[in-house]
Nucleic acid binder design. Structure first.
Length: 735
DNA sequence: GGGCCCGCAGGG
DNA sequence: CCCTGCGGGCCC
């Protein structure tokens, strides 16, 4: 059992309680506080003379000899370490990217190690980490690690103690510590991942797979927020939210679990990070895209965002003091204003928070990179940090002199926080001392048992009284009103979410464009193959339209995808998601067949509006139970098997007309496409229009290129306006 | 980096 | 239907 001191908040890192002063002994060498009862052996009385902690004076038995078996692994070890160092040193990467890369390095190491026997594995992991990712001061795996530019790691607490002594240089190499880092150290999330991985290989029982620490990259998402016609002029600044991917109602309290995540089936995990508030919203963690508080004054608050919008906020990770909203002059069409101009009151969102406080509801918390003063904020993006309870709320004069509403949030989540290398989530902890409470007015504390509480017998946090009943459940019974996808089968969803923008089939070798569209690699490449480079005039500084640049444009939105085509990297994560959905679709359809419930299942399929239009003619209505379920819930399956679709005479007639309108495509091809489209002729025609346009374009280009080449202008094609490629900016057209 | 401006979403 | 809001892009 590891021996650990008390943390910055005075909490013993072994038993997680804050011992009384009389139960704490200070190390004479490093001045760190230790809980006497958790020492080995437990200390009963404070020693009369000097006492050095286990870190400063390890017992003589401590340094274990490195087993011979491990020496063989030295190369691996150096390799892993150098890879991690390289990742950490790469300034071009965001923190999430660093974390992700570290994790994959560790995963590879882990996989390799899986072949080893358990003992060797443990030893190796320990060996790799004990000397290299340790805090320079306390020599333990760094707790809430911060990393100096010189590459040395410290516990946040040790680092803060060091700089508070006026030290301005690294404790290891004496390199100067930048003043910004000294005053605002940020936790190194990549290192947290690495440390957690290291710990898990030594501390987690061998049969328990380590839950991966997931970061989601923007491009891995199927859908994005969109820009309405009206809002186009400043891009995402005025974007409308994209689809909500989770099926919880908007007034759902508490974590978002796997059942409500039909896309990934994993729920929203602590540490998940999104590019911005819009994306955070799409995964349901915090719905308002400007406001910091999500809630209703007569019901409770579901979530808050810590984004540095109010200077009174105070962040200690596991607990923080939050400031209410309002008190600001927003005249002049402003959305925020850092100047307070009147007192805040417990009304609206502030009252909603107070309700959550009184009831003890779990409140989801996201932290944004825009919070600059907190060590716990992510370096980039918006991160979900789990649920907290509001233990008290009150008012006090804020920094700017006007009264502000104040809330004490204390973490109570079953998942460990993103900044801790702990393996487990929170345990009930005593409330921190809040000095400002002595000046508080309108203090409210919870009188009843909290609705979300620690369940001793199960050892988890959960609802001990029934959670509030959602007032916003839609007609379908559950789910967010924007997220009606629960009614689609997996196969339908696959096509809808992961359909190629060109062939309209489920993506294979998906390429994701920066503009958020996805195409099969072969489809996209063939679109541009045989084309000569297209050069476009690029406006620089408004008037000078002289610069020419080779540009390739997204077939869906005309966004610039030149870079992607130069280096077409298949989106492996998306591929994985598709594979797992396919697997699930297959499993489901097997199950359905076994149960002989195809007909019932078909009845239950709620189709989207377009499919509905086809109505009774839909082959879905095929009632022949003995025949192969032609139009089952899984269109994918159909593609590999029977590609013919039974259509009634009316539909067959319409289909023939379509075939006649598009002579460039064979009837066989169209028949297989209609299967993919669930028998929806409108969808088919829509698709054909796109394909035909592409085909026409391709032909035009080919003929032009050959013409122009003959005129020997170097094969450069100048795109004329109105040829299907939109000018980059409307503005430049005005001239 | 700061000011400005805007659409959108949701509460009431 | 009005008010509010811990965004986000652009311009300077």
């Amino acid at each position: 059992m590891a021996e650990l001191p008390c943390d910055a908040d005075g909490m013993c890192m072994v038993c997680k309680i804050v011992p009384e002063d009389t139960q704490v002994v200070l190390c004479n060498s490093c001045a760190s506080p230790w809980h006497m009862a958790c020492l080995h052996p437990p200390m009963v009385e404070v020693p009369a003379g000097d006492w050095s902690c286990p870190d400063c004076e390890p017992s003589s038995a401590a340094p274990a000899a490195v087993p011979v078996s491990c020496i063989n692994h030295m190369d691996d070890k150096n390799n892993i370490l150098s890879q991690i160092r390289a990742v950490q040193a790469d300034g071009s990467l965001t923190e999430q990217e660093k974390a992700q890369r570290c994790q994959s390095i560790m995963n590879r190491a882990g996989t390799k190690l899986d072949n080893d026997i358990e003992g060797k594995k443990k030893q190796k992991m320990l060996e790799i980490f004990d000397e290299n990712l340790n805090c320079i001061f306390c020599m333990q795996l760094a707790d809430r690690p911060v990393t100096t530019p010189c590459g040395h790691n410290f516990c946040l607490r040790c680092f803060q103690r060091w700089v508070s002594q006026g030290k301005k240089n690294c404790g290891k190499c004496r390199a100067p510590i930048p003043s910004r880092m000294a005053s605002q150290p940020r936790i190194n999330s990549a290192l947290v991942v690495a440390i957690r991985m290291a710990k898990s290989s030594t501390m987690v029982p061998s049969n328990g797979p380590v839950k991966p620490y997931v970061y989601i990259q923007n491009q891995d998402r199927p859908d994005k927020c969109f820009t309405t016609e009206r809002a186009k002029k400043s891009g995402k600044a005025n974007a409308a939210s994209g689809k909500i991917f989770v099926t919880v109602p908007p007034d759902h309290f508490g974590p978002i679990t796997a059942e409500n995540d039909p896309i990934r089936g994993q729920g929203v995990l602590v540490g998940e990070t999104w590019e911005d508030r819009m994306e955070c919203r799409q995964w349901g963690a915090h719905l308002p895209h400007v406001a910091g508080i999500a809630g209703q004054s007569d019901y409770g608050a579901q979530s808050v965002a810590l984004s540095g919008g109010y200077e009174d906020d105070e962040d200690h990770g596991e607990w923080f003091l939050y400031t209410g909203s309002g008190g600001r002059d927003l005249s002049g069409n402003k959305r925020t204003n850092d100047k307070q101009s009147f007192d805040q009151k417990f009304d609206k969102s502030n009252l909603a928070l107070k309700v959550s406080c009184k009831k003890g509801y779990p409140v989801r918390v996201v932290r944004s990179h825009k919070e600059k003063r907190s060590s716990y904020a992510p370096e980039t993006g918006v991160r979900y940090d789990g649920v907290y309870r509001i233990e008290k709320c009150w008012r006090k004069p804020g920094i700017q002199g006007f009264k502000v509403c104040r809330y004490l949030f204390v973490r109570c989540d079953n998942e460990p926080a993103p900044w801790t290398s702990d393996q487990v989530g929170d345990r009930p902890r005593p409330l921190p001392e809040i000095s400002e409470l002595k000046d508080a007015i309108d203090l409210t504390e919870r009188k009843v048992q909290p609705a979300w509480d620690w369940k001793e017998e199960e050892g988890v946090w959960g609802w001990v009284t029934s959670p509030p009943i959602s007032r916003k459940i839609d007609e379908n019974g559950s789910g967010h009103k924007c997220g009606s996808r629960k009614s689609l089968t997996i196969g339908q969803r696959l096509l809808k979410e992961f359909g190629c923008g060109l062939c309209k089939k489920v993506l294979s070798l998906p390429l994701s464009t920066p503009c958020g569209h996805n195409f099969c690699k072969p489809c996209l490449e063939s679109t541009f193959s045989g084309q000569k480079d297209i050069r476009e005039r690029v406006g620089v500084g408004g008037r000078s339209l002289r610069t020419q640049k080779v540009v390739k444009r997204c077939p869906t939105c005309q966004g610039d995808i030149t870079e992607l085509l130069l280096n077409p990297q298949v989106n492996r994560q998306m591929e994985d998601v598709i594979q797992s959905l396919k697997q699930r679709a297959d499993d489901n359809s097997d199950e359905e067949k076994e149960n002989g419930e195809e007909a019932e299942m078909r009845e239950a399929i709620v189709v989207d509006e377009k499919a509905e239009d086809v109505g009774d003619e839909s082959p879905r209505e095929n009632s022949n139970r003995d025949s192969k379920p032609v139009q089952d819930s899984n269109p994918l399956e159909q593609r590999n098997g029977d590609t013919k679709l039974k259509m009634d005479s009316l539909k067959e007639e319409q289909f023939s007309k379509i075939c006649a309108r598009y002579p460039d495509f064979s009837e066989d091809l169209l028949r297989s496409m209609i299967v993919d489209q669930d028998g929806d002729l409108e969808e088919l025609e829509g698709m054909l229009k796109v394909l035909q346009k592409e085909e026409n374009k391709r032909r035009r280009k080919t003929s032009q290129v050959s013409k122009k080449c003959n005129e020997s202008n170097g094969g450069i094609l100048v795109v004329e306006e109105g040829e299907g490629i939109a000018p980059k900016k409307q503005k430049n057209q005005d001239e």
